[in-house]
Design a protein around this nucleic acid. Structure first.
Lengths: 203, 203
DNA sequence: TCACAAACCTAACGTTTGTTAGACTTACCA
DNA sequence: TGGTAAGTCTAACAAACGTTAGGTTTGTGA
């Protein structure tokens, strides 16, 4: 929404991007505005022309991330009817977004503690909404009999937690491609560690 | 190893315990030694009689946690032969330890970034060893044909990640008991979201 | 050419922080 | 009773931090 077509990114956008990288590297609290300014090609206090405070930068990153996740997920599963396919596409989107926006998602997942009460409540709310979408799918699938989840709320948390953690260890230069990670995780989410071994095929 | 039998906890022990609570509440970087001292019933600089630096306190918490996890896991699965039972007991131990030591485990899982290079390397090493135990079990189970995991390393990371995240949301006063959480998670790890519905029972 | 606003810089302020040195207190043993 | 060591306190230091005020540059439109 910030940059249209092919314009070079605004300074504000650069600062946000560099902030995400810096915060991910050193953590929000250990990152200084002076270093953020340096990385953004600007001197110390100039940041305050674009942002009111250090915390606002953090909030902007997290809020935009949550908005993208919510909107992207909604768009991804809208047309799909079957719960199994909905879950499949939802998870794939979740993983891909996390791998394509590692800095921002990592920050959004680790720096909640450094948000003020107001800001935190808003992010937590959006998080809850995001998670409710998944637990809704699990509920529907279980009701229809195609899934068998005891506690859908717990399961959705578990699914998101394990996918969210991918940027922690994923390495671009590593042996695994994004597609492989997506495939493996989806397989695990659906079949567990017991896998397809010794069971009827149903998908 | 610190306190034997029923002696009252040493000041050093109190500081470590309060530090875990404080670090979990506010994060390591946002916690001040002055507040840690206050909570530990001691004045400002007295902490330095027991610890050389703020970082040493963090490292002690994380290192002890990892040692307990490694030793506890080993002890828990030693006698068991069947990979399915080994995994079952391993996960149950992992979850229970995380729920019984929420402050310490939460700190150990979130504050890696605030460790110096040396300390971090040591903790990362122990983490890798811990995780290797689980991936070993999955490998064995897959080789024997009782499990069906495509990438055992990936799956073990996923399993640990989702269990490790439990202290994030678990509430002692909430509707769920520890036993229920353990049961649900183990069920999910083994059977995935498809569950037992429409499959042969094999366990 | 001038005016004006956006963008940026410089220099500093006040506060907080981890850390330290040295004095003080307490408990125990000879 | 005196000495010694462990434990704690007090007071301060130097560095780093977020933030601010006011000046300077740059670009644009009339």
């Amino acid at each position: 929404m910030e940059a249209k077509a092919e314009t070079r990114p605004s300074r504000k956008g650069i600062i946000l991007q560099e902030a995400a990288r810096l915060f991910r590297e050193k953590g929000y609290r250990a990152s200084t505005l002076r270093e953020l300014a340096r990385r953004s090609g600007v001197k110390g206090g100039s940041i305050y022309y674009h942002f009111a405070s250090k915390q606002e930068i953090l909030y902007r990153i997290m809020d935009e991330t949550m908005n993208n996740l919510l909107q992207g997920l909604e768009h991804e599963i809208r047309e799909e009817q079957d719960p199994v396919h909905r879950l499949n596409r939802g998870i794939e989107f979740h993983i891909r977004y996390h791998l394509e926006n590692q800095d921002e998602t990592h920050v959004a997942d680790t720096e909640l503690i450094n948000l003020g009460d107001d800001h935190r409540r808003r992010i937590v709310g959006k998080r809850a909404e995001y998670e409710r979408t998944f637990s809704g799918i699990l509920e529907e699938g279980t009701r229809e009999g195609v899934m068998g989840v005891g506690n859908t709320k717990l399961a959705s948390i578990a699914v998101l937690q394990m996918c969210t953690g991918i940027p922690y260890w994923f390495n671009e230069e590593g042996p695994l491609s994004v597609d492989e990670v997506v495939a493996q995780y989806i397989d695990f989410v659906f079949w567990g560690v017991l896998g397809r071994a010794g069971r009827r095929e149903s998908i």
